[in-house]
Nucleic acid binder design. Structure first.
Lengths: 351, 351
DNA sequence: CTGAAAGCGCTTACAG
DNA sequence: CTGAAAGCGCTTACAG
């Protein structure tokens, strides 16, 4: 049917007897050429199965027609967290609306920076980026619009966040109100690129937990709080249980910075015959769909992942269009969802 | 720091005093130029914050360094099905391994064909594609390697499948073994592009269900089987319950072609006070993580979404490299997972 | 309405 | 080791 060499605009020009200019117009601004020319060109295109090469077109137009999401982790573990998937959904739906595709960008040979160097995208949405990171410098060097979700807001870095500190304080209050005084905080294991930086979402939440503890005259130290870092997956939660079980004075409440971790812990605890919330209480963060599905259902803080993604994407498109941006630091609402996994302390004691 | 115009290879050549060729070598084949040249060039690049433009580089190299997944639905509903997410994970992990990104391609102004025309990718993984679809023709016209997951295998279309017909037969057998004789099959609502085509996964599964019924001397008609099509989301499952409830002779078992649909139905049924499996049995398809989390846990057929994605991606990369392909129709194993949602019929009767 | 030509920013075969 | 030049396949300002 068609030859093995790809057919280009030049072929269509030759066959149809018109110029490359006209061929281009036939596809992009049909109104600018005569009906006769258009028909001859389209006929030739049809016969040869010509489709304008998107890469050449994009290059010529100096655009990519795709937005990138920079994944801080292996793509595999990132997508295993339904919250991330929600964010991607939100970004994706806006991309779709504007006729763009969505590119998932994992680290390139272990390096997020290399990934950014090579990223063929019109805009970049990052997860948990902080202004001091070297990656940010590279993004800026490449002069491509970017927005960070769950990063630390800073002057030249547009951001989408919830008030993590308040949200964390509020959920910890619920835990304290229920009478718990020995608590394990399951925090987010940070990837290397984040190490040693401050103002991460993890830090904000820690501060919030601490605020609530302070309200009860407690302080954030080994006497009442144990910190167990976990990878942000169900497996991360499962293995955190091991560390929890080894604690001599076992906490009566597990406060997780992520629902998927909380659910992993719940599964593992239940496998060990430990009752929730009778033996130990459990609260999460995110309110992923699964948190309502699980038994007991999870008390958690609801934050709108899809909304975060959507807002970030809309912001990126505004930046791409060069619109005046009314607000570059967007705060999205959260709320506490009380369900079954948090019990009162009087019932919380493990043999 | 840097001017507003983007800095190109030409600038670095000018500033460093070397040619564009040498600059290019400095970045891509440092061994081919002198240390002196390399240092001068890198210094200039450093000063101006030069990063080679990926778009130009890709265009010159005639590649994109990204693989596309063609989404048959709105990106939003596609990602709401954890099974699809699993497939994406699998594809993504292989892309990552080869230093590629992964592009999610939703329909472009409602058209999957237009999306393919504009897709800037080196290879395309499609979901549920059939050889007769117009989209396939366009992919072939563009001469880009492609593989279909859950499509119908055909000569010139490499594919990854499970034996859907057998899998469906096996799960239906379990249902029949449990004594059920009035059954509702919740099938997949097909998107328009699929309408009127045969050999879809839906068809294969229907045949499998039918095979099992035949073994029991039953036939696939209104006397014992009701077919309710549902969108492949939790909401799809929820609304399918409405149709189920209206049936006068209510089925004792719900056989779903997708776990996410089954879970949606389960939630809705439970909200209505209907007990599973006491009042009605429920089985699914896919074995997504959530199916084990839910109460009662879901009896279903396990199929490895991640593995499907991985295999499809590996195949695409083989095609891109021009390797000899040993096998273009890959069959991946499935198995029946018996859990709690399927009960024996003697207990299945609703007031 | 139509077309020749420059341009997008790289890579690379070739010659020196 | 180094560089001039062609080429990747489009778009588009400009002239006719």
């Amino acid at each position: 049917m068609s030859s093995s060499r790809r057919v280009t605009i030049k072929d269509i020009a030759r066959i149809s007897g018109y110029s490359k200019t006209s061929v281009s117009f036939a596809f992009n601004e049909p109104g600018r050429i005569s009906v006769k020319a258009r028909e001859a060109i389209m006929k030739a295109a049809e016969e040869l199965g010509y489709i304008p090469d998107p890469l050449a077109r994009n290059f010529s137009l100096q655009r990519h027609h795709t937005i990138g999401i920079l994944l801080p982790h292996l793509i595999n573990s990132a997508l295993r967290n339904p919250f991330i998937t929600q964010v991607i959904q939100g970004v994706g739906s806006v991309c779709q609306k504007y006729g763009y595709t969505l590119t998932l960008i994992p680290p390139l040979n272990e390096s997020v920076s290399d990934a950014v160097r090579a990223a063929a995208v019109d805009g970049l949405i990052t997860l948990g980026m902080e202004a001091e990171m070297k990656v940010v410098q590279i993004i800026q060097q490449r002069k491509i619009p970017y927005v960070t979700i769950d990063g630390s807001p800073s002057a030249d870095m547009p951001s989408i966040n919830i008030k993590d500190r308040f949200a964390a304080r509020d959920i910890m209050r619920k835990v304290l109100e229920a009478g718990h005084r020995r608590i394990a905080v399951i925090s987010l294991m940070e990837s290397e690129e984040f190490m040693g930086l401050h103002d991460s979402v993890t830090d904000f939440r820690m501060s919030g937990y601490s605020d609530a503890l302070a309200e009860y005259g407690l302080c954030f130290d080994a006497s009442c709080v144990t910190i167990i870092p976990a990878a942000c997956t169900m497996e991360g939660g499962r293995s955190a249980v091991g560390q929890f079980m080894q604690l001599e004075e076992r906490p009566t409440a597990l406060v997780c910075m992520s629902d998927i971790i909380a659910i992993g812990m719940q599964q593992e605890l239940q496998a060990l015959g430990i009752q929730i919330p009778a033996d130990v209480s459990l609260v999460g963060f995110d309110n992923i769909i699964e948190s309502a599905l699980v038994t007991p259902s999870l008390t958690t803080v609801d934050q709108p992942g899809g909304e975060k993604g959507r807002q970030a994407a809309e912001l990126i498109f505004q930046l791409i269009r060069g619109d005046d941006i009314p607000q570059t630091h967007i705060i999205v609402p959260y709320r506490i969802i009380e369900r079954e996994s948090l019990g009162s302390v009087h019932t919380a004691a493990i043999g």
